[in-house]
Write a protein that binds this DNA or RNA. Structure first.
Length: 721
DNA sequence: GCGATCAGCT
DNA sequence: CACAGCTGATCGC
């Protein structure tokens, strides 16, 4: 629970994730993600009134957050005042005091936070230095080193303060299994259950509004079964999520909710009300995603824990672990750090005590050399998390944290944009391309799959999934084949035709019975039993429950982190989101498109067009045409960008499959750069496809170009005159 | 009747 | 485990 009060010392005229009290006076608002505890005051009458009296105050957030927020009618009054900013696109924002006319400017960059769809961190650059507000985040180790816009000139930016998500900043959360491990555990558990019969269903007992989507989409992808949810209209413009969800209850995987869900479950009834299908009772297990952690410095905790005959907990965390937090912070190495969260049972002092040593003033005299290109890219060959730091910490003789002088002749390229509500591109008909792009950046976590794959410990290379040899009848492959490609319209129809006979039936013991006896829940539920079996080497599965009590451990679920690694990780590698960025392109081809330099030329041209089609928020239509509109571009001389011109003083290691760029492509690109033409990628850059891997060609160019380019969002009056 | 706050629950 | 977010009680406007 965030205890951040909304304001940062360096930029007190802006408010982030808090909208009450002092924040009512802010000149601009920022929302990092769409969770209620970060939206305090956002729909209060006081703020609504402020908005009505103001011409200029706006809320800035990611496109996905905007979409999610505006799905709720309660926030509709914000509609004309929300300006979405593309991920990783430095954007200048005016901070105007409407009473005095006093104006300050700040450049904000949104960085993916991996917490939930649309979640971002905000990097602010302005007269009072560079500060990072992380919001809530979960980033794997090494992730910061892959964020280009945290760097300039191949070094980490000089960041004065970090406002940090410290939810798990406590040694007892030393390590939390990775998303991949946790996901893999759930996949295997689900597989072991739903392949038994069409009447075996799984209920994912998810609490929070957003954040489980990658779980849903991966399960859906894996088993060819859509996930039943109560609502999906918030994802109407995010096909990569939407396609995996359904409001049709006739599915084997549910994530629906009901206030009395637990009670229902006791009676073998799903939250949506079904208890049977074709008059045959359903057999249901519940899986409750919840944060677990590995014991301090051990790596043996199971990612799936059975807590009752039909109840499981699955390890799942939206927040970085202690070691991930430390890794992140020590990489950023700011001057100051401010915890956003003081976890219960600890104090501000204790948290600061942990974090301060990772900050600048506590470092040895020599700054760390943290070049962008080399870190975390190569496969690591050792396991120990602590040792990883050696990768970073070799001090170099040069004071490399100093800002570099201008090293390129390029001037900053500035896009003038209007914040006029009426001119917002959202008012224009968004192209599907736009929406797809929006969707893509929803999934920072999809990155992790790749990253973990290539980086993490001594993992085996992609292995074939463990087969569930003993689970006879229905394999997931068969199921997959049975499922038709979903039609868009399907998601908007109410399933009135459902003739499920058990729907409104009162729970009868005979019907609920089946192979599971309700009485078994009485005292076993709630008592956490960690099930572990060391003899499960390949196939992870659940034993037949009908034949034994749930406490029989001999052949029950066994999902340790270790096993996950050698187990079925194939589903992760599919990278279910990746092929969908460009629909109808097979994943393999997609991969080639990204990795193969020969495609870059057309790719960039394509991006150019995308920029035309998809103006950034507030962008005037003239700009959206994609033509040069010189008067709308101004040269900026932001001191904060002074060091951002250098980019090529480090080497990007080759991606194995990639070739070096050919001369003509490079020439094309550099010509564009030289003339200041807009080759930069607005939406494409938000793709996790090109933010995660060191693409030989793109990376140096992007680094170079992104840094010098800043969008400007200006206010109406200034624009039109 | 609505909002803010808190206890309780999961 | 302390997620995030509901429900219900109470109080104040």
């Amino acid at each position: 629970m965030s205890s951040f009060m909304g304001q940062m010392a360096e930029y007190p005229t802006i408010s982030i994730d808090r909208f009450d009290r002092e924040n009512l006076k802010a000149r601009a608002y920022f929302l990092s993600h769409c969770h209620k505890d970060h939206m305090k005051g956002l729909r209060a009458p006081t703020l609504k009134r402020r908005l009505e009296c103001s011409l200029k105050v706006c809320l800035y957030c990611s496109p996905v957050t905007k979409e999610l927020l505006l799905t709720s009618p309660k926030y509709k009054f914000w509609e004309k005042r929300i300006i979405s900013i593309e991920i990783e696109t430095p954007t200048q924002i005016p901070l105007v005091d409407e009473a005095s006319g006093e104006k300050e400017e700040v450049v904000v960059t949104l960085l993916p936070a991996g917490h939930c769809p649309g979640s971002v961190m905000f990097l602010f650059q302005g007269n009072n230095g560079t500060v990072l507000y992380t919001g809530d985040f979960r980033l794997a180790k090494g992730e910061a080193s892959r964020m280009e816009l945290l760097h300039s000139g191949g070094r980490v930016k000089d960041i004065r303060s970090v406002y940090l998500d410290t939810t798990f900043c406590d040694p007892k959360f030393y390590q939390i299994p990775s998303r991949e491990e946790c996901l893999s555990g759930v996949v295997e558990l689900v597989r072991s259950w739903i392949t038994r019969s069409p009447y075996h269903v799984v209920w994912l007992n998810c609490k929070a509004a957003y954040g489980y989507e990658y779980l849903f989409t991966n399960l859906s992808e894996e088993f060819g079964v859509q996930i039943h949810v109560d609502k999906l209209d918030m994802f109407r413009n995010m096909p990569d999520i939407l396609h995996h969800l359904t409001t049709d209850r006739r599915t084997q995987i549910h994530a629906c909710r009901h206030p009395k869900a637990e009670e229902y479950f006791h009676w073998n009834k799903l939250p949506c009300g079904i208890i049977s299908k074709n008059r045959i009772p359903l057999h249901t297990i519940s899986i409750k995603p919840s944060t677990m952690w590995f014991g301090e410095r051990t790596r043996k905790t199971n990612v799936i824990v059975r807590t009752g005959e039909s109840s499981y907990r699955a390890c799942f965390s939206f927040h970085s672990s202690y070691s991930e937090i430390k890794d992140f912070l020590s990489y950023i190495c700011p001057v100051n750090v401010y915890p956003n969260v003081i976890p219960i049972g600890t104090t501000m002092d204790k948290v600061v005590e942990i974090l301060k040593p990772l900050c600048r003033s506590s470092q040895s005299t020599e700054p760390k050399y943290k070049p962008l290109g080399k870190l975390k890219r190569a496969r690591k060959t050792h396991l120990d998390s602590e040792e990883e730091d050696e990768l970073f910490d070799d001090p170099l003789p040069l004071p490399l944290r100093h800002k570099a002088p201008y090293q390129l002749a390029l001037h900053p390229e500035v896009f003038v944009m209007t914040a006029t509500p009426q001119n917002q591109p959202e008012q224009q008909r968004p192209s599907t391309g736009y929406l797809r792009a929006e969707c893509v950046q929803t999934f920072p976590w999809a990155n992790f799959i790749d990253c973990e794959e290539s980086n993490s410990e001594s993992e085996e290379e992609l292995q074939t999934p463990a087969s569930s040899q003993d689970l006879g009848a229905v394999t997931h492959h068969q199921q997959k084949a049975d499922v038709e490609v979903p039609q868009w319209e399907v998601f908007f129809k109410r399933n009135d035709e459902i003739t499920d006979d058990g729907l409104e039936n009162p729970p009868s013991s005979t019907e609920a019975g089946g192979s599971q006896s309700p009485k078994l829940f009485s005292d076993s539920d709630g008592e956490s039993t960690h099930i572990s079996s060391q003899n499960s080497s390949q196939s992870t599965h659940i034993s037949e429950q009908g034949s034994q009590g749930w406490d029989s451990q001999s052949d029950t679920v066994l999902l340790t982190s270790q096993e996950r690694k050698s187990g079925d990780i194939t589903s992760l590698n599919k990278g279910s989101y990746r092929p969908r960025i460009k629909e109808n392109i097979p994943a393999t081809q997609m991969e080639q498109n990204i990795l193969c330099p020969k495609d870059t030329y057309s790719d960039l041209k394509h991006r150019d067009q995308n920029v035309k089609i998809v103006p950034s928020v507030g962008e005037p239509t003239a700009l959206s045409s994609g033509k040069h509109v010189p008067q709308e571009k101004r040269l900026l001389n932001l001191s904060t960008n002074a060091d951002s011109q250098s980019s090529s003083d480090f080497e990007i290691p080759s991606t194995p499959e990639a070739e070096l760029p050919k001369g003509e492509h490079l020439q094309y690109l550099y010509e564009k750069l030289g003339t200041g033409e807009n080759i930069v990628i607005e939406e494409r850059k938000s793709s996790f496809l090109d933010t995660q891997k060191p693409y030989v060609l793109e990376q140096p160019l992007k680094t170079l170009h992104k840094e010098v380019r800043v969008q400007i969002i200006t206010d109406t009056s200034e624009w039109s005159t």
